[in-house]
């Protein structure tokens, strides 16, 4: 049995340890570290394809979704990996979508020691004017990417599968999606149309739609006219494993197994300890 003095020493040591842990540097609490644009390691919100989501003629107005959340997050694409042979579309529907996509892609490219000058982004529709931005500085809102595992979401110009753009009308906050162009090797649409017009055509190509937006309901609505493409709304800093997990649409196994396994193992321990089953002991 522990003596009282030992208990006090143990308690004092514990208290000091507790203080150290509580007031440790914040970055340890935040964990992970990594790229400056992705220090946040928050959870994800899954927004599935659903028939029950409202569709407003292919246009989505945030005013119709008062419960919509707001995400002031920039850049997560540098963390995103897509499984081999999977095709994904990344969409940002925020006013800072350029920063979101551009910074993320740029950082990712730099991380891969890719010369940013070789990056070629097509996209950017701002108030009706199409712009082409190079050097990874900006991409307005949407990146459509066909990517190999562990490859940048958008790779160098000769390997970019397709890049598109959507429009963000800042003034009215009426997010009407327009797909002004697509690469020639896929399908080229011209003019202005809603994303629901283009998604059915892309549906066969896409395995995953990753959305980042201010309106949580937003893109679950967008795909209602398409094939049942899984749509996910991500926050910054999602890891490859998480992406693959949501693509499999399954909770993590550690979540499923941790405590039930501990409970089961300790139950077995009790069964042995309290001699529920006769244990033949040597000697």
């Amino acid at each position: 049995m522990m003596k009282g003095s030992q208990l006090y020493k143990f308690g004092s040591l514990t208290f000091v340890l507790m203080l150290l842990m509580i007031f440790q540097p914040v970055q340890i609490v935040n964990g992970h570290g990594g790229a400056s644009t992705s220090t946040y390691k928050g959870p994800m919100l899954l927004v599935p394809y659903t028939n029950s989501s409202p569709v407003i003629d292919g246009k989505i107005n945030l005013k119709d979704f008062p419960e919509a959340g707001h995400f002031n997050i920039t850049g997560f694409l540098d963390e995103v990996r897509i499984s081999h042979n999977k095709t994904a579309m990344f969409v940002s529907v925020t006013t800072d979508g350029a920063e979101f996509a551009g910074v993320g892609v740029k950082n990712r490219a730099l991380h891969k020691n890719t010369n940013p000058d070789s990056l070629f982004f097509v996209g950017g529709v701002n108030n009706g004017s199409v712009s082409t931005v190079k050097n990874g500085s900006y991409i307005q809102s949407v990146v459509l990417s066909h990517s190999d595992y562990d490859a940048p979401v958008v790779e160098t110009s000769n390997r970019v599968s397709f890049v598109g753009a959507v429009n963000v009308v800042n003034d009215t906050r009426n997010y009407e999606f327009m797909i002004p162009l697509l690469p020639e090797n896929y399908h080229r649409s011209s003019g202005v149309g809603s994303v629901t017009d283009i998604l059915p055509e892309l549906g066969a190509l896409l395995d995953l739609v990753v959305i980042r937006g201010e309106g949580d309901n937003l893109l679950s609505t967008v795909v209602t006219k398409t094939q049942p493409i899984p749509v996910y709304l991500l926050r910054v800093g999602e890891t490859a494993a998480q992406i693959e997990q949501i693509m499999a649409n399954s909770p993590s196994w550690e979540t499923i197994l941790l405590w039930p396994s501990i409970l089961f193992i300790l139950s077995v321990y009790f069964v042995v300890k309290y001699e529920v089953v006769p244990i033949r002991r040597s000697n």
Partner: peptide
């Protein structure tokens, strides 16, 4: 518990979306 709380800290998840059923409950 403190070690778990500090190295696997609590996170806040986004606000819910009305009309969807996509999540799974906690382990229990």
């Amino acid at each position: 518990i403190s070690v778990l709380s500090l190295f696997f800290p609590a996170v806040s998840r986004p606000a819910p979306i009305v009309g969807t059923e996509v999540s799974r409950p906690d382990w229990i």
